[in-house]
Write a protein that binds this DNA or RNA. Structure first.
Lengths: 231, 231
DNA sequence: CGTACCTTTGATGTGAATCAAGAGTAGTGG
DNA sequence: CCACTACTCTTGATTCACATCAAAGGTACG
């Protein structure tokens, strides 16, 4: 169970602990849980394609899911990597539009699909849920605005530093050690870099003494210094 | 009045015709109108700064407002240029966060400020309004996803072509003439280009015969050809 | 009619991608 | 346990799209 992959899952309890459903009554959570479906995905399996009609939204129970665009040259641009307790696909439910990205399992994974109809019903019944939903979408919107900001006015090295700082506990001032949540390849795509460039940036940051890299373990000897470079 | 600047405005009628308020009852629109404030802005005037606390959202009555980030070197990156009947700042109301961008009048302008409190009250009372709000945020979210896609996997020329196609009526297949909604400088920033690069791209597209440029008037002799290049 | 800003054009520079190997590092199966 | 394949990651050489720098028209407007 250290792999975070319990054989049996209590759907209702998972849903009730999602930020989106914190204020929703147990009875209503039970209803949602009853409406939802579990989907087992093998590593590399597609959950949906870009352009598929949106039937609902998804919650990751365990494993990792990436959202990405295909590019014409067969590359891809990863928009987000989602782990346990994270949800995606909410926004698309409120517009008659297909998914603007595709979703693929990065590792073996289990996701919950919550049908559009259940959500709409709950929205019409429970205004606190509607407010929670609005808050959720707003947060996502902010993070996209932040992405746009990053892409347009920060250098590749600054984006990498920003990413590392995001992964760290915020309060700490001194030495911190973190594990990258996924492969460097994926992180590169997330930051809009090639793997080569990411590797070189890590190398440079090591030379400067700002970080130490051992595989996926990154040690930051002095958070303050890293924050300064981030200006 | 050809300048789109009526001396007197009927706030309630403006609000009632906003996409967000289409389904809202006249009485509630009256309430919102009563709560709202008008703000006159001279060209270049700031409506709010990045980091200001969010007190509500805004609707452009006439004129143009740009949303942008300041960059460290005194440049700026324009995120959006808003014209009459467009609203902004909704998302930020639902999170306890300051504005992530600043808002500045591109031309003399009149905007309506609708206080957070009125919106929250209306949300709690009217579920169709909540759904409209969710739809509105979803659309904004999509367009940001689209921006991220553009920045990360399209060349500068492709972004320009995409922009031009967006400005055109969608159905037409043949010759179209459009007027750029704002200065080329602003459009360049919107597309994450320098003015120089935009100018050169327009020049190239003229050479290829794909467009003709006369100041802010752009003629597209053959929409099909332009769409093909956009692939 | 002059000042201020937008836009164009040209020359040069550079950050990051691409191309091309090699070095780890895992998983797989005999 | 060790080869065998398949990735992921690193490193170096080269290229290219776009920015930057510089200066000269255009255009609007008091």
């Amino acid at each position: 169970m250290a792999n975070g992959r319990p054989a049996q899952v209590d759907i209702a309890s998972i849903i009730s602990r999602l930020p989106l459903f914190l204020e929703v009554s147990p009875a209503q959570v039970q209803q949602i849980a009853a409406d939802s479906r579990q989907k087992r995905l093998a590593k590399g399996e597609m959950l949906f394609q870009k352009g598929d009609p949106a039937r609902g939204f998804f919650v990751v129970v365990w494993g990792q899911i990436k959202l990405a665009f295909p590019s014409s040259q067969g590359n891809e641009k990863v928009v987000q990597v989602l782990g346990p307790r994270q949800s995606f696909g909410e926004a698309v439910m409120f517009m008659d539009r297909p998914y603007p990205v595709y979703a693929e399992a990065v590792t073996d994974a289990l996701v919950l699909q919550i049908p559009r109809k259940s959500v709409i019903e709950l929205l019409e019944r429970d205004t606190t849920f509607a407010l929670a939903m609005l808050a959720g979408l707003s947060i996502r919107l902010h993070s996209l605005v932040h992405d746009v900001e990053s892409y347009s006015l920060r250098s590749s090295a600054q984006r990498v530093i920003g990413y590392l700082l995001q992964q760290c506990p915020h309060e700490g001032t001194d030495s911190v050690e973190i594990a990258l949540p996924t492969s460097k390849q994926l992180i590169a795509s997330l930051l809009n870099l090639t793997p080569e460039t990411l590797s070189r940036i890590f190398h440079d940051l090591c030379d400067t003494g700002l970080i130490e890299v051992h595989g996926r373990q990154i040690k930051i000897p002095d958070m303050r210094k890293l924050r300064e470079v981030d200006f």
